[in-house]
Every structure is written in C-alpha cells, then in structure tokens.
Design a protein around this nucleic acid. Structure first.
Lengths: 117, 117
DNA sequence: ACGAAATATACGTCATTTTATATATATGGA
DNA sequence: TCCATATATATAAAATGACGTATATTTCGT
C-alpha cells in the first residue's frame, strides 16, 4: 500500500490519535466507546480523530451492530508497521499510554469485538 | 534520554524537517548550506526548522569555523532511533528523498565535515 | 578594521488544525 | 413506532504552525 510520509507522521503528531493508535496496536480492535472511556475524552473528539485516521488509511473500521470497531490498517506499508511497533515498545510503560490500558481494563459493560463478528 | 512522544512526531510531521532528518540519517553530519542546496529551499527556512529540531533535541549542532554542522542526536531513546531507521529504509528510494541525495552529491564547493573537526 | 560568507532571528501574515457545543444519523429492542 | 445507545457531522472560535522578507550575528580572510 502507498502512503504519504509526512501525512502519516501528521497523524501521529496529535495526542488523541497517538494514544488511540498505541492502544489499538496493543489491544487489537476497539470501538469508539472503548476509546472514549480509555482516554477519558469526549465522544465527538475521539470520533473526529478516528475519522481522520480512517481518511488517511492508518486504520480500518467495521460495523458490528450498534458499534463500530477500529483497528490498525493491516495493509500499511512495512516501514509504517515497524514505526508503530517501535513506538509501542518504547512508550507502552509510560503515561498516558499505561493508564489508558488500565482504564480500558476496568471499563464496565465492555462490548466484545470477538463475539460481535 | 527522555523525550515527549507527541512532540517527537510533530517534528517529523513537516516536509522540510523530515527531509532534513532522513538526509542526516543517511549522510551523517551536514551543514546548513548543504541542506539548503540539497532540499532546494531558502536558507532561513532550513535554519528555522533546524533550530526547532535542536530545541526539541532531535539533532545536535557543532560549529566548525563558519559552518555549523547538524547531526541526528545520538542520545535519542532507542525507540526513536528505531523509528528513524525504519523510516529511512522505507522511503529512501522514493521522492523527494532520493532526489535530495542526488542534489547533495552534485553540490559544488561542498564543505567536508571530517576535515573541519 | 572591513567585507564577504554562513547562519540565525524578528516581524507580519496567511493557512491549517483543534476544540467545544450542538445536532444529526443509524441501529437495536420493546 | 418509539426510545435509548452508539457514532458521526456541522459550525464557529481559538490556537498553532509555516512562510517570505528583511535584518542581525558570527566567523574568516585581507
């Protein structure tokens, strides 16, 4: 797959998008409400940033009933995957990324991506 | 070394800065006039972006006579180096990065970083 | 000390990006 | 059909970022 390098990095250059990407890279598919809860930001804010990630093809979405699950686009070029992997390794034990996973883990009534396929 | 992740990616999210970083990652130390020539942009533009990279500690500078040589900061955290390496591997054979190296190679009166130490 | 070359900074302006708030759309269940 | 939940979009204001042009600073050679 092809991708503009600067545009790719512009997507990583925002806290909301970066935290969403790191969380998806670690946890796999996540729906908007899970991301909203994990990051502790407003729903429109998450939604807008996810739309931007989708437009730039960093992520893909899938509707499952009332939920829409987002995941890292598996068709990203190899170097982009490598960049994301290196980032995750480097920052996953730092804040706010660490706290995001904790908040996600304690979320009540969490929809299960696997069961809604 | 410590670095803010979003701030790091903001530095990569601009064409002039990204081209400069990729060129430095491949060629090693470069002075402002070499970057100006290679990228084909104005001197103040290059200088301003290099200053920003220095302020965010992505690069270090070294004065050698009338020239100031910039290089990737070797003290960047490992994951940041990995990100840069992956990027270089992925984009070095694409434009404009490929052309930047060609323009640098054909630059007349190029100062030699090694001889000016 | 003076001029030339290399580099840095200041200023005003324009374009892009992000945000909050409000509202619209879509889905599922009663 | 009606309501609740999940998600998306519109709008306008605010913040941020990049740019060209002009000028300042530093260093070297004479």
């Amino acid at each position: 797959m092809n991708i503009d390098t600067v545009q790719f990095y512009k997507q990583l250059a925002d806290e909301t998008r970066l935290r969403s990407l790191v969380l998806m890279a670690i946890e796999g598919e996540l729906c908007v409400c899970e991301l909203t809860h994990a990051l502790g930001v407003s729903q429109p804010k998450v939604s807008r940033h996810l739309a931007q990630l989708r437009e730039n093809r960093l992520v893909r979405d899938r509707r499952a009933g009332q939920w829409i699950f987002y995941r890292i686009n598996p068709e990203l070029p190899g170097w982009a995957h490598a960049v994301l992997e290196a980032t995750v390794k480097g920052v996953r034990h730092r804040e706010p990324f660490k706290g995001d996973r904790k908040a996600l883990a304690t979320m009540p009534n969490r929809p299960d991506a696997a069961c809604c396929a």
